[in-house]
């Protein structure tokens, strides 16, 4: 579905990614984990076209999309939930959702999309006239996911959607992602700091350090769960 090959990029003169190769299979949940500053966000930004790749190739749905700008990628069904959500805080929930359906294809299916996201997140329907900035953290995250769904994506990339959320809310978000995959047949590429969450959600995992893939495989292969339990829970 999506493949980045040998991706290199950075900011200004500073190189951050040193030849990243990752793949997201159709209708799978793939996670990227790694320490702060490893370059996880940079990978997603480069794939989205928000920063230009210096080298390497991005293939999506069989096409080379390496140099396409973000809005062209959205048109093709690639969407992203940014780190820190980036909602339009001064606009209402509904205005945020309508802006999600900005592209021509998405606009034609606006009513249908609204119904889907309202069914998925009933709270957003209740709060539809409320300003996005006044929602709780969990609700904002749901709105960010809902806004991404409004673009009618085939693949969603999410950058740390569980950041700053209570564990119970994190679980809800992960359940939602599984639902998206099962019911809407959406492919998911997830950056997730929380290794345990990643372990329980992912079909396939990449571990990134210093802008390189250091390990990859099914979570049970590449994540040492005992080690993590020890580190996280002190068991």
């Amino acid at each position: 579905m999506l493949e980045a090959e040998n991706l290199e990029t950075g900011y200004g003169p500073m190189q951050i990614l040193w030849g990243i190769t990752i793949k997201a299979e159709k209708q799978s949940i793939t996670t990227i984990i790694g320490p702060n500053g490893a370059g996880k966000t940079t990978i997603l930004r480069a794939i989205m076209g928000m920063i230009q790749p210096w080298n390497g190739k991005i293939t999506y749905d069989g096409d080379d999309v390496t140099m396409l700008p973000p809005h062209k990628k959205v048109e093709r069904g690639l969407s992203m939930v940014l780190e820190g959500r980036h909602l339009f805080g001064g606009m209402t929930v509904k205005e945020n959702l309508i802006l999600g359906a900005y592209t021509k294809q998405a606009r034609e299916r606006l009513d249908d999309s609204l119904e889907i996201v309202y069914t998925l997140f009933p709270i957003l329907k209740e709060r539809s006239t409320q300003k996005a900035g006044t929602l709780s953290g969990g609700q904002q995250q749901m709105l960010a996911i809902a806004r991404a769904l409004m673009t009618r994506p085939k693949l969603i990339m999410l950058d740390e959607p569980s950041q700053g959320l209570a564990p119970i809310v994190v679980e809800q978000v992960m359940d939602t992602l599984k639902k998206l995959r099962e019911e809407l047949e959406i492919t998911i590429l997830l950056v997730e700091q929380n290794v345990l969450v990643s372990y329980h959600t992912a079909d396939y995992t990449y571990i990134i350090e210093n802008g390189q893939v250091v390990k990859e495989g099914e979570p049970s292969e590449c994540i040492d769960i005992q080690e993590i339990r020890k580190a996280y829970l002190g068991v």
């Binding site: 928000m50 700008p69 973000p70 809005h71 959205v74 939930v81 940014l82 980036h86 606009m91 409004m150």
Partner: peptide, 17 residues
């Protein structure tokens, strides 16, 4: 208005910034 509020948020909505 979306670009004024959040440029990157606008990008991922498919707006040609």
């Amino acid at each position: 208005r979306a670009v004024v509020e959040d440029r990157e948020g606008a990008m991922v909505c498919g707006i040609d910034v």
